[in-house]
Amino acid sequence: MQIIIFNSSKEPIYEQITNQIKSSILAGELKEGDVIPSMRKLAKDLHISVITTKRAYEELEKAGFIYSIVGKGSFVAEQNLEMIREKKLKVIEEQLSMVIANSREIGLSTEELQQLLNILSEE
């Protein structure tokens, strides 16, 4: 699990951690049931205080991204529909950006692209 902390960022460190773990889950890098490091280990590895990782994990738990079992550790939770939707949307966005980038290369206008999309959708 890769997490990068910006010390000079305005965003609090615990938020940076929650956001990065969330995106890893949404991007499918972390899958349901995957073990994530204990908050104490993570604190040590990131050179930050335990209370910061504790807060990040608490927020992730509240949002249903992870769950913890005492004595066993923390795991990626089963994702609910809304989250999966969010996850799919993210994938779609990425794919569409690629489509747009490809279109630009051959000079396809946005309108032409929309037409293409309509035709394909009606099939």
Binding site: H47, S49, I51, T52
Partner: peptide, 21 residues
């Protein structure tokens, strides 16, 4: 880097003892 709580003493009085958050 490592503190979770900060206890701040001033002139023999504890001003606060709070989490860094």
């Amino acid at each position: 880097r490592i503190a979770d709580y900060i206890a701040f003493l001033q002139r023999g009085e504890l001003v606060f003892n709070q989490s860094i958050h």
